[in-house]
Design a protein around this nucleic acid. Structure first.
Lengths: 150, 150
DNA sequence: TATTGTTATACTCTATAACTATA
DNA sequence: TATAGTTATAGAGTATAACAATA
């Protein structure tokens, strides 16, 4: 039973088997989040990737750039771009440890720590907003189910 | 309590407040899916976007390109690229309806229908694979929770 | 020799704007 | 005038490969 479009009533077209796929549901949910996510971080001229990098560095003081690349799941060259931005904003420092002068030790500046604290609070508010139609138990269930996907 | 790295045991670094965010859990789950998704569609030289387009056209015979752009959430110029690929593979036809010769009516070829049927089955197998650690009820719960995010 | 960070480069995806043909 | 499809172009994001410094 294939429905033709009704030109008078532009209803949402059928999406076939897509609606049954978890992968598609994930993508659609993420697309719906994105606008609010960007608006939340725009105040600090941050992108999701920059915020993730800043958070991971904050939680792992002195970490290497290569480790950061592994955690974020991106190439080392991509980390350089992120770090250039974060360092340019005065949020991150790179230093060369005596133990291995090939590496850079990454740390937050006081300004970086302060900004991260503000952003984290804003991100939690953002997260509460986009999950406002879920009660606390449902939200927790969603997190634990997502952790078992893949 | 901030943990320093132990060079001997390269444990997964802490990810700070990221783990509590639904948006981050979504992104990580999607990244884990991607490898299997790409491998599944590679057999037909398809990308996720191409598969989505093919599915939507299959469910809405004769639909316009602009409507497809709206459903997929991309620009019209992006649809042209997708359609060029799908038409070049012999899966989709573009025709100019007499009712409005500015538009193109999109339809699947017999080859397109056959390929879509195979791909849809492979995609369902892929979906079952990536959700193999969820029982049927949990999988359904995940879908309905995702639909309420954003 | 191998690894780290870096640079240069290219590729993918997508958006914006201008163009054409129809309405 | 306004709209549909197309084209050209540019931007963001990310990857690969080559390089210098260090191990």
């Amino acid at each position: 039973m294939t429905d033709r479009q009704d030109p008078g009533a532009p209803a949402l077209p059928a999406q076939g088997a897509l609606d049954e796929l978890v992968g598609y549901a994930l993508r659609r949910a993420q697309l719906r989040l994105y606008e609010d996510l960007h608006a939340t971080l725009a105040r600090w001229q941050m992108t999701p990737a920059r915020f993730s990098a800043l958070t991971v560095i904050g939680a792992n003081p002195g970490m290497k750039a290569t480790t950061l690349a592994d955690v974020l799941g991106i190439a080392r060259s991509g980390v350089v771009v992120l770090l250039n931005g974060l360092q340019g904003m005065g949020y991150v420092t790179r230093s060369a440890p005596d133990s291995d002068r090939r590496t850079v030790a990454l740390d937050l500046t006081p300004a970086g720590r302060a900004a991260l604290a503000e952003m984290t609070e804003a991100m939690h508010a953002h997260d509460r907003h986009v999950t406002r139609r879920l009660d606390p138990l449902e939200r927790q269930t969603l997190l634990s189910l997502l952790a078992r996907v893949g």
